[in-house]
Design a protein around this nucleic acid. Structure first.
Lengths: 195, 195, 195, 195
DNA sequence: TATGAATGAGGCTTCATTCAT
DNA sequence: TATGAATGAAGCCTCATTCAT
């Protein structure tokens, strides 16, 4: 960001701009994602946009980082299971749902950011976020007595991500209940450290 | 496509255009992906390009469909395993490698196509291709005596896709051997119908 | 220049663009010197302009170089005097007039180019042109028997340039005849190698 | 200027703004010469700038006039020579140096002012300053017994100006000593009224 | 008076597409 | 059929200027 907003009015503008960007990125085809459109949706002038962001890519990066942080926070907010068997299955379902929700909130962001070229800054944020998620999963796997907690966590993370993207691709963001069950089973099995 | 090429020279032009499109989509940032760049790379003039393709989206769609068909063909070309246990593991590894190769060949296509908006025509092609792949996996699972072959095949397919995307995201398109092993194990287990 | 024009139509466009640029640079204040204005004056679209010139600076450079070459040619076209005394004075007057005419034709170009920043390419062209002019003057001074022909030529050149700029600053591009006389006297004296 | 500053702090702001303008004009390419840049350099806000200056052109004009007055003062501060021969040569060198220094101090001002269009007010200031300088030179020429003091002074003034611009065009603002000598010789000769 | 947030016209440039040759 | 010149809408961004606080 080019300038930090000092006054309240300025902070509101920045928020409006970021939210407008998120919306347009989520909704529309990439063609309608122009700085003019962002400014109009945010209810400010283009000039204001450029007071706070270096350029369009800077703006997208900021929105992308927020998204990554939010998904990370959602995942982290799922309470880890006890060693007792019953809660592991619930944990697995909660992980799947939380991640899928997070992705759904910014549907399209992914594709657009890829299209605009992933900046190294955003890539780092993403990697940090993934690493945290994997560690957290590994701790669970370890508590459950898995032989290779890190490897199990890696696979589990991949499964969760794939589930989220799969749900996004479905009309209505819904996946048959049986598929959720199956994913949850796999997840629980992985984290429990079964072969 | 607007017009079918009749003469040999014309067919060669069309091939060159499609190949140039594929290359630019695979190599570069979206910015250098212009009709001028395509024509130059293909060694023809822009005018020629518009003789055979309605517009840019039409061209991208065609390339996209080819890509989907190619990945499908690659998957299909992996010989199904015998019921004998040894070949299942080799089959799993081959599936992973084949899909990852297919995706790598057209790296960037994904993002661009998403960015330009997935056309319904391409979406159908994609769905048909996925369905065929799942059926083929289901037949294998059935032969191996899995309890719910369709469900196992679905999960297996997702695992394969995730692996391909994972490899694309790594620098150098390489993934530690241990990860391949782990994925192959899971895949083999799923197709073998173990819980 | 970005692309060399092949067809006749293209060459005409390029000429029109260069001439429009020269006119606007000569006439107006720098504010009205926009790419849109250039294109309109040239009777082409902006797009055409960018087919042949990298950017606005490239265009200005090209016009600048033409100007420098033209002034140089004007100077060179003044026939050198015999050693016989009478023609030296006529030569001096001709030099003054020729240079002043050349500058007048592109009045304002100077200031604008300075304002946009003298590119190194243009600077070199300018230096080469000046060097040629000084050499030519030095040969005359030598023929007239000057003690230090190079130094005399340097001062003579400066006098000529100053005269051209002086005339440009006057309303109506005219300078009292007596001033021309005085400059010519000085010039003749310098080239004749008197003290 | 829009408003006279009353308080001391206000006067300081105005000075800072004028000095910042002068610096930016002297240093940089025209692009970085924006009101924002001026305000930042001056350590005030843009708003303050517009309290004291009608618009940007007004500010530039004020700086331009100061510059013209300063160069004039520099010239005037060179003590006129006695009729005794020795000091005339020193006087000539001093004139050359003083003017060149004055121009160097505001290098770039020239181009910018020309680019923005010489306002009539500034033009008048400039003419008055030149007239004063010529008169002063004419008095010297007269004291030295020149036949046509006004004409000699005119040429002398032009020589001095050309020298200043010549030095500005050189890298490092330096000119070979021999050139200074030659200019000084000419100047002395002119003012001494030799043919 | 000073601040700095906001404005928006306008400048530069790109690129998908058309069409005369 | 192929060429490539021409088009112009539209995108990104800057910056002089205004005005609420």
């Amino acid at each position: 960001m080019r300038k930090r907003p000092r006054q309240r009015r300025a902070r509101e503008s920045v928020e409006a701009i970021l939210e407008a960007t998120r919306q347009l990125l989520t909704e529309g085809p990439i063609e309608s994602f122009s700085t003019d459109a962002i400014a109009e949706r945010a209810g400010v002038s283009v000039g204001t946009l450029y007071q706070y962001f270096e350029d369009k890519a800077d703006l997208v990066r900021e929105v992308g980082e927020r998204h990554v942080r939010e998904v990370g926070a959602l995942l982290a907010s799922v309470a880890a299971p006890d060693a007792s068997d019953g809660s592991l299955r619930r944990y697995a379902v909660a992980l799947l749902e939380a991640t899928a929700e997070g992705h759904a909130r910014d549907r399209g962001l992914h594709a657009t950011i890829l299209g605009l070229g992933l900046t190294s800054s955003l890539r780092r944020t993403l990697e940090r976020s993934e690493a945290r998620a994997r560690e957290s999963l590994a701790r669970v796997a370890e508590a459950q007595g898995a032989a290779d907690p890190a490897m199990a966590a890696g696979l589990a993370y991949d499964l969760i991500e794939r589930f989220a993207h799969k749900r996004l691709a479905e009309p209505g963001d819904t996946v048959p209940e049986s598929v959720v069950e199956r994913y949850a089973d796999e997840l629980a099995r992985l984290l429990a450290g079964e072969t």
